[in-house]
Design a protein around this nucleic acid. Sequence first.
DNA 1: CTGAAAGCGCTTACAG
DNA 2: CTGAAAGCGCTTACAG
Lengths: 339, 339
Amino acid sequence: MNLEEVARLSGVSRSTVSRVINNDPNVREDTRQRVLEVVRRVGYQPNTAARGLAAGHTRILGLVIPMGVSALFADPYFPLLIQGISSACNMHDHSVMLWLADPDYERRTIRQITHNGLIDGVIVASMLMDDPLVQALAEGDLPFVLVGRHPTDNRVSYVDVDNRAAAREAVAHLLRLGYRRIATITGPQNMIAGADRLDGYRAALKDRGLAFDPDLILEGDFTEAGGYAAMQRLLPRRPEAVFVASDMMALGALRALREAACRVPEDVALVGFDDMPFAARADPPLTTVRQPVQRAGAIAAEMLIDLIKHPGQGPRRVILPTELIIRASCDAGPKARKH
Amino acid sequence: MNLEEVARLSGVSRSTVSRVINNDPNVREDTRQRVLEVVRRVGYQPNTAARGLAAGHTRILGLVIPMGVSALFADPYFPLLIQGISSACNMHDHSVMLWLADPDYERRTIRQITHNGLIDGVIVASMLMDDPLVQALAEGDLPFVLVGRHPTDNRVSYVDVDNRAAAREAVAHLLRLGYRRIATITGPQNMIAGADRLDGYRAALKDRGLAFDPDLILEGDFTEAGGYAAMQRLLPRRPEAVFVASDMMALGALRALREAACRVPEDVALVGFDDMPFAARADPPLTTVRQPVQRAGAIAAEMLIDLIKHPGQGPRRVILPTELIIRASCDAGPKARKH
DNA sequence: CTGAAAGCGCTTACAG
DNA sequence: CTGAAAGCGCTTACAG
């Protein structure tokens, strides 16, 4: 069933059917109704490929998730992000093509994404400091937006949270509670969020005029196993509290603590990051920084759709608010407890 | 940069360039090399829409995940499935379009998926007993495969595990250990896997000539919160052991047990299903049925690609093996412990 | 408000 | 082994 057929059945030209399909106002109302009736009756659905070829756009958004560690994808972060993007796309009558790419892209993969002549734009769940895909995108002219800020190029559009400020606030909270020997388990330092959150940790200490102790900084990889391993190495160094740069890692830290028979927060306090669904249900429930992942996805999609509609517009940035969620994994602090 | 240009630069016709691009053997070797050289030099990438329109296929697979409860998507099951599908697609030079659909599809959504003229076939992470999309697919002629068996229509292709047999084995294990008062927290009974696993539970009891007690059967929804709520209601009924139809629900059950100060496995033993990454790290580690989710995804994709290549072939079925993984959440059993 | 026609960038018989 | 040409199913100036 194609345009031609619908035109014939409606007794109009293909042009007119096309106009009706595309909501062109220049169609007489009764003509429109007649065509619409036929469309409904025969269940006509325009061919996306033909449409894309003729119109030069497809209402398809690409989503690329650069994934080194496959374990990372187990983090609910990505499902939430995808959900946000997907729902915004549904709302705006767009579809999404998904690429899970190894960040060691071959050049061919990059070309496939940027020049396939199908997608109207792409969302990159960007996390690496130096992503060759992002660079290719910046040099090309396919609209794109990053989820996660770009560290250097100020021509790119993105949506993000202020990871540095949020981490700083989280650590400041620990300091306010009276904790002093505060460690951190960081994300990978080649990921922007990982570096930014460590930065925030440092800033919070500096705000109080405290020196930071390199022994209390352990690099994790945003996975549960990574948090577990880091916490084990950290334990002998006797931290009073730990700022863990993701809830997933905090879960691992919690496990290491449990195995070592350390009580949380009595022996070691913990603060996570993300406020993933499981954080509230952890034992003990995690104090953590809530970030609106799903909303970030939705906004990224909408931003991209807008960028596609209005090309040549300046870069757009949206910084979403975070919120420190206080739960049982840190309490009144060691000083207070002594009284 | 299009075919025309490449043809001009190579000094051949568009037809020849097209043949080279598509690995048609009917091209003289030196011509092929010449064209390839130009293709590489200018970074030519064929336009997917044009290609799809002309050739009638696109090497794009649709993936639809019918999602009622959005909380369900937090289950690592879907990320794993997507990873499997995605990696198989990469391997076979295919791409994937993703639809997260409310299973209360509007007819329009179904048409959009089945008649968009873009995808060559679709994978449905089918879980509902009666999915209108699946029915539409069965009546149409777009190749498709389900992840999860179809309960009635024996013309559909799918990959699945034997949920019934696996559940039966898990419960038989509890029985062997000496547990008798065995409860189950089921998945939603409008999901095939949910119904099949309950069936397996019943079969295991029957194998031993044991009657089953309706009071010991609680319906969950495959979420952590659902498992938690079900376990709370179950507790007063004093089960010795519980077969929980998914690890995610088992996590919730574990939380309810912990809050009620019940020890696992001393007071209540637990068996889960899925062997999700977190199952081994739970406290205590979960005995559970391992199913190869990622592999199921990969096989579904490969099956679909094959079905597309060889249309009109009979339905294909693959049942993947499961394995009962013994961990600490159930032990020698109440009888044994008395000695 | 409507239609005839060109064109989007490919593939693929067909002829040679 | 190669090229000219038709055609895939749409959209969109253009003319009326």
